[in-house]
Design a protein around this nucleic acid. Structure first.
Length: 842
RNA sequence: GCGGCUGUGGCGGAAUUGGUAGACGCGCAGGCUUCAGGUGCCUGUGUUCUUUGGGACGUGGAGGUUCGAGUCCUCUCAGCCGCACCA
């Protein structure tokens, strides 16, 4: 049973009718297309530009509360920028391809396109009902032929330059989703999307050559204003490590096998050699040897295991000797070759040298199989493995050299012998982009028995996704069954040929959408560079941390590749990034259907209004942190909006009006503060204080919560001074509305219009008058030995002597200083006096 | 294990450069308004002692620097997130 919802309050006069107010202003913005910016900039428009963007939503069902938070933050920033003289691009679109719609189709038979379009319609309604200031003229879904035509075009640009290629390799296969996955989509051996344990399969798949960009993706992180934890995650993901390649000659077949090592200084301690089970030479090397069948069994077992089963660092090391040896190039010793699953084929060369004295994994392996362990780095402790620094021992002519120095010496020696060199390795692997599923962008390639892979000619784009009846995947894309579509002619030889039936990973669609927004209706090109360069990079990007690696890394790769092709004039897509925290359920845990703690935006907006819902979400706490939902606090925010609105009602009844304007001064009020009655002056001061506070909180600080708190203080102050001059109260109320506009645009517009007759979004952001920011008196804090003993009024700007005098005279101070020796007195002007006395008996 | 983040009242959270800890909101208590109300308004609200003047304690814990520490330094505990056999 869900909690009974109390009946709505009868709308008394003192409650504002949020539904009517929100409908009114949403109508104005829709009819006047208020938030559109023209494709071609007006040359007379000298305003600087700002591109504010929230991550585009995946349209599935109805928007959830996380969407509301994302777009409330973005909208506040967009409005603040606009009111501060920027021309702001703030568009919206839908990441509309993807598995949930397709899985739904398998279950219900509803075509993905139908379900997706229905969901998009509900997102559109929601965004309008929330009053988000979107440039609707640039809206699109990534599943429309008008968009994916250009996704395909970009793919072909990459293909022509070797950035998109086919490769057979061990790939991650999700048995649940029946498709391969990119590395980034495997989390702890499980499918990032559905959670099924991922298997390894040897398949030929389409890949993007993101590894070509590893260095730039890493180094350019220093040029962007992103949260440090996101940069760190990307750095770790790319995983650049410096080391050396060393060749070991096999005594059986005379071939050289190369290993990558970060510790060439420990080469003399290499007492064995290990290959990954997937290494192509493993079975060949074991053939005819004493362990041939054991090796075969071991390899087969390893290959059949899921990446989860294969395990982690804690797992006991296992392996089988191949029965052959390699020569340690520096000692000349023959050392045994092994196959072991702790060596990964995907990293380095798929083979490693085993240095059990100075590597934890090699040590564990050597202990398990009684392989000799030889210390080559001396240390004070006897315990092995020792991974620290020290002078070399047992290392021939390098003995005595510090290992850090020996590193370069040994690499140099290897290079001169032609058996090694300095080298850099990366954890990052190429982006596997093909998916054996239907609801994605078709890969515009034709397989011709004679010509091989042939790109679809540009003039024939888009390759349209055909309608199908059977969505169930069977190890290959459901598209393979669409024979009319699959069978085609080769563009090169005109012979019979087949279309590629795999579709693209949906992360491809979202890797360039932010570019398309700059020229969204172009039907002759993906974009015109001049228009894109005018807006990009995105000045402020806002989204969830869950995309720290996936989307944000892919988008960066796309921009760099497209810039290299000459299509873009910048290197990074998102100059600044803000990652929002999650809204948790009222119980403090992550919202989920199974927990039954999901809060939906629609009923909230209906009951409290979009303004209250948005303002509450921003008030709840720092927006980059998680925070639990609390409906009572939302009611508090609604109460605050009501209190503001009621002030305007009362003032309108009194006939109070003020001139619209942003400066604060020149609103028909004289600034001769001191001459005014106390009520007026206090209210004016509070108003200017709020202008100053909200401006600073919004200006790059994302401190929406304290900005809202300041506005609450201002409104409370209004209630405390009902006797202030109506004009002053109107000024304070209109200013509060003006400052509130980025959070609660509808009620802000209504209040502002009632008091000024103007539209608040057409007014510049208010500017605080410094004359009102300082009072002629302040509260002097009087401390003795750091403890507050009194607070007394003191004149602002008083000199040290005067403040000291006041402090000593303050009531309650003398009893703590009398009879004690005064050691010194600290005076902080306009703030405090601290009297330091000797402790103990007088 | 490595890397990162966070610990402040009953709750969410405030606190530019070290300078009044607890802004603002919720909750709670009391009062006023109201035929009534889950409405509105006002007041109070860290803990504790108190002779009702005030005092002591207080930002996960322990030390330290300083006239003064939520803030800086060292150690430590707890929770969350990311990576996890990457040679």
């Amino acid at each position: 049973m869900s909690e009974t919802v109390p009946p709505p309050h009868p709308i008394a006069e003192r409650h504002f009718d949020h539904s009517a107010i929100e409908a009114k202003w949403q109508g104005v913005w829709a009819a006047e297309r208020t938030w559109e910016v023209p494709r071609e900039a007006d040359p007379a428009d000298a305003r600087p530009r700002a591109y504010v963007l929230e991550m585009l939503p995946y349209p599935s069902g109805e928007p959830h509360i996380g969407h509301l938070k994302n777009y409330a933050i973005g909208d506040a920033i967009a409005h603040f920028k606009r009111r501060n003289g920027f021309q702001v691009l703030h568009p919206m679109g839908y990441d509309a391809f993807g598995l949930p719609a397709e899985n739904n189709a398998i279950k219900t038979g509803t075509p993905p396109r139908v379900a997706t379009d229905a969901s998009i319609a509900s997102f559109q309604r929601a965004f309008r009902s929330w009053g988000i200031s979107i440039d609707w003229s640039r809206e699109f879904g990534t599943h429309t032929p008008e968009y994916y035509r250009w996704t395909q075009w970009i793919f072909l640009q990459f293909y022509e330059r070797g950035l998109a290629y086919r490769k057979e390799s061990a790939v991650n296969w999700c048995p649940q989703d029946q498709t391969v996955l990119a590395n980034e989509q495997v989390v702890n051996g499980h499918c990032e999307r559905c959670g099924a344990a991922v298997e390894l399969r040897q398949l030929e798949q389409w890949q993007f050559k993101i590894t070509d960009y590893a260095d730039r993706l890493l180094d350019d992180l220093d040029t962007i204003d992103w949260p440090e934890h996101v940069k760190t995650q990307q750095r770790n993901w790319i995983g650049r490590s410096q080391g050396a390649e060393v060749q070991f000659r096999c005594t059986a077949n005379g071939r050289d096998y190369t290993v990558f090592t970060t510790r060439p200084d420990t080469l003399f301690g290499a007492t064995f050699f290990v290959m990954a089970p997937e290494h192509p030479d493993v079975l060949r090397l074991a053939a005819g040897g004493p362990h041939e069948s054991a090796v075969r069994d071991y390899v087969n077992h390893a290959l059949s295991e899921s990446s989860e089963e294969r395990g982690s660092a804690e797992k006991t090391k296992t392996g089988v000797p191949l029965g052959t040896t390699v020569t340690n190039p520096v000692t000349g010793e023959e050392i045994p070759m092994w196959v072991a699953d702790y060596v990964l084929m995907e990293y380095g060369t798929g083979a490693v040298m085993g240095v059990p004295a100075h590597d934890e994994r090699d040590h564990a392996f050597a202990r398990a199989y009684d392989v000799p362990i030889r210390r080559v780095v001396a240390s004070e402790v006897d315990e092995l493995p020792y991974t620290g620094d020290g002078p070399l021992v047992n290392s021939g002519r390098f003995d005595g050299l510090h290992n850090r120095d020996a590193y370069g010496e040994i690499v140099g020696w290897l290079a001169r012998q032609g058996i090694g060199r300095a080298s850099t390795n990366y954890r990052l692997r190429d982006w596997l982009l093909s998916r054996q599923r239907y609801w994605g962008c078709p890969i515009p390639i034709i397989h011709c028995p004679d010509c091989g892979l042939v790109p679809v000619p540009e003039a024939e784009l888009p390759v349209r996704l055909p309608d199908i009846d059977e969505y169930q995947p069977k190890g290959q894309s459901p598209l393979a069954a669409a024979t009319d579509w699959v069978n085609t002619t080769c563009p090169r030889c005109q012979g019979p040929a087949r279309r590629e039936t795999d579709t693209m990973d949906t992360f491809v669609d979202s890797s360039w959408y932010f570019i398309r927004y700059c020229d969204a209706r172009n039907d002759t090109a993906a974009w015109e560079r001049r228009l894109v360069d005018a807006w990009m990079p995105v000045d402020q990007y806002i989204g969830g941390v869950e995309h720290a690696i996936l989307h944000l890394l892919y988008a960066r790769f796309f921009v760099k590749a497209l810039a290299d092709i000459g299509l873009l004039g910048f290197q990074e897509p998102f100059r600044a990034l803000f990652t929002q925290g999650m809204i948790l359920g009222p119980d403090g845990s992550k919202m989920s259907k199974s927990r039954g703690n999901v809060i939906s935006p629609a009923p909230l907006v209906a009951r409290y209004g979009a303004d209250a819902a948005r303002t509450y979400i921003l008030f709840i706490g720092p927006p980059d942190q998680d925070a639990p939902w609390n409906e009572s606090s939302l009611e508090g925010v609604h109460r605050f909006l009501t209190r503001l609105w009621r002030q305007s009602e009362e003032l309108v009844a009194l006939g109070a009006r003020v001139e619209a304007g942003g400066a604060g001064v020149g609103w028909g009020l004289d600034t001769g503060g001191a001459a005014r009655p106390t009520d007026d002056l206090t209210l004016l001061r509070k108003t200017h204080w709020a202008v100053d506070k909200v401006t600073h909180d919004l200006d790059g600080r994302f401190a929406f919560n304290t900005a809202v708190a300041a506005l609450m203080e201002l409104v409370n102050e209004l209630y405390r001074h009902p006797d202030a001059t109506p004009a002053v109260r109107a000024f304070a109320t209109a200013t509060a509305a003006s400052l509130l506009f980025p959070f609660a645009p509808h009620v802000a517009c209504e209040v502002y219009e009632r008091l000024t007759g103007e539209r608040v979004w057409e007014q510049p952001w208010p500017v605080a008058d410094p004359d009102f920011l300082t009072a002629e008196q302040f509260e002097l804090v009087c401390q003795v030995n750091g403890k507050v003993r009194a607070r007394v009024p003191a004149p602002t700007g008083a000199d040290r002597e005067r403040l000291e005098e006041l402090a000593f005279a303050a009531p309650g101070v003398a009893s703590h200083t009398d009879g004690h020796e005064i050691i010194k007195v600290i005076v902080v002007p306009d703030k405090l006096v601290n009297i330091v006395v000797r402790q103990g008996a007088p």
